[in-house]
Design a protein around this nucleic acid. Sequence first.
RNA 1: GGAGGCUUCGCCUAGUCUGGUCUAUGGCGCCGCACUGCUAAUGCGGUUUGGGGUAACCCCCCAUCCCGGGUUCAAAUCCCGGAGCCUCCGCCA
Length: 425
Amino acid sequence: MIDLRLLREDPDRVRASQRARGEDVALVDSLLSADERRRSSSVRFDELRSEQKSLGKLIPKATGDEKAELLKKAGELSAAVKAADAEQDEAADETQRLLRQLGNLVHPDVPVGGEEDFTVLETIGTPRDFGSEGFEPKDHLELGQALGAIDVERAAKVSGSRFYYLTGVGALLELALVNAAIAQATAAGFVPMLTPALVRPHAMEGTGFLGQAAENVYHLEKDDYYLVGTSEVPLAAYHMDEIIDASQLPLRYAGFSPCFRREAGTYGKDTRGIFRVHQFDKVEMFSYVDPDDSEAEHQRLLDWEKQWLTGLELPFQVIDVATGDLGSSASRKFDCEAWIPTQGKYRELTSASNCNEFQARRLSVRMRDGKHVKPLATLNGTLCAVPRTIVALLENHQQADGTVRVPEVLRPYLGGREFLEPVAK
RNA sequence: GGAGGCUUCGCCUAGUCUGGUCUAUGGCGCCGCACUGCUAAUGCGGUUUGGGGUAACCCCCCAUCCCGGGUUCAAAUCCCGGAGCCUCCGCCA
């Protein structure tokens, strides 16, 4: 959530941000009045409570008529305190409820608009010209099936659409990607983490996934657990309710976990193969930093993503995601989109978000800076979302003979093999 | 799944039976000051977090003894519900 003080001092800035996101602007005014109500009721409660306390000190010492008199007074006061307390609680709850509905303030440089209104910041590598190489590229599913790497038919039988088995060399490829990604992250100083995939409501809510994104989250009703859509959730909640000394920052974690997404509202979209699936594994980078350092850290996360994709020898572009596509927690988001030859376009492979203090406030993760305690900033960035990376690798590195070239960075993790070979049926 | 124990201001801990003197005890750690002509020892003071008052500091008020309700004039303390940790039993790896 955003800073209430900032909202009081500069409500127009918050309104502008809401407008850019395409969210309800009237919420800001409801919030301001709820906050005012909270402050005045809190003052009244404090006064009454103070009076009640001093009265409470006299009662045990008093006797007889004097005591009876005091008890009568205390009884009346008690009722007033209870009423004031209830009013204070109600106003505070209402303020919190409204405040949590508000998305993060958007960074001023973010392009305003919907999904299509992103800005391309940079293009790295060049898409291959299959025409001049004299063959038509096959899509990842056809390649994956020929390699004995992907089985979606049997997955559909067992689990339904948008599921897959990685088989044989496909399974090895995932393990190689994960190991290479963890190795890169560890070399960069990230602490590797295997995280829970089921979390309690508070962790999910605090990370900001129960807002507009709620329809894409799996919920286990019987036990009130949520399945995480990314290890960002358990990594953000890892330090919840903690105060971290400034000298400990930045804290960087590389989480590896399964990710679950309902993919509601995507019927008919990316239905072929494993580009958009209900369950996949992902290596995610997560940073806790001083808010003053968040923009620099955002750039660093992006640089690590670029390093990763460059190592995989994939052509890609970096985009500055538009306001309407940010998600409620991010103030700014950079996506790396890899070229997918059979689609003839760039598609999202990684995503780096700067949430600044938004998640930290909701989860109560703070830093101690000298005498002051303040919320810190959290950032997250994909290093390797496995299935999409496999899609990009297979399609971009395919050869005319049906083999797929393994980029050098992965070879140590694949027993040194340079090519993936089709298997006999 | 069943039974029991525990949770106190960074860590440990007293207090809970018997409600008010708890403005929560003591130790450790940490910070400051003093002293000893060095880092040590000792002494004194300070050391939760949040909200509010204040331009801000000092300071003052309110809340905060795992969380949420309840009883009461009054709750760390009594009652109910929940969470977490631990022990034992059962069950399944």
